[in-house]
């Protein structure tokens, strides 16, 4: 079970799949002030991205995984966040 919900926080773990998007959306509709905890999340399917972008919930914890966190920040933080990677060694 990748999603645990309480009254105010949705905790997503490992992977939010395409099927999960519907559940996340429903939860956010029912909990307009709900927060999302993504600390242990490794990947979210793009459908979830859309839901999060449309809802802009408060993120209780950003993913520990940097690449995902970077993209989520780029998507969810209102201002055009510029994320310059000075030296990624790529």
């Amino acid at each position: 079970m990748p999603i645990d919900v309480s009254d105010s926080v949705l905790v997503a773990r490992e992977l939010l799949s395409v099927e999960d998007a519907e559940s996340v959306l429903d939860w956010l509709i029912q909990h307009p002030h709900g927060q999302i905890d993504l600390a242990d999340c490794n990947h979210v399917h793009a459908a979830n991205f859309q839901v999060l972008m449309a809802a802009r919930p408060k993120i209780a914890a950003w993913p520990q995984r940097e690449t995902l966190a970077d993209w989520l920040r780029a998507a969810l933080i209102q201002e055009d966040t510029i994320h310059v990677q000075d030296d990624s060694g790529s």
Partner: peptide
């Protein structure tokens, strides 16, 4: 998003 995440770190996004 998976497609995108597979790419190297972007300079700007």
């Amino acid at each position: 998003f998976f497609q995108i995440a597979q790419l190297p770190e972007p300079l700007w996004r």
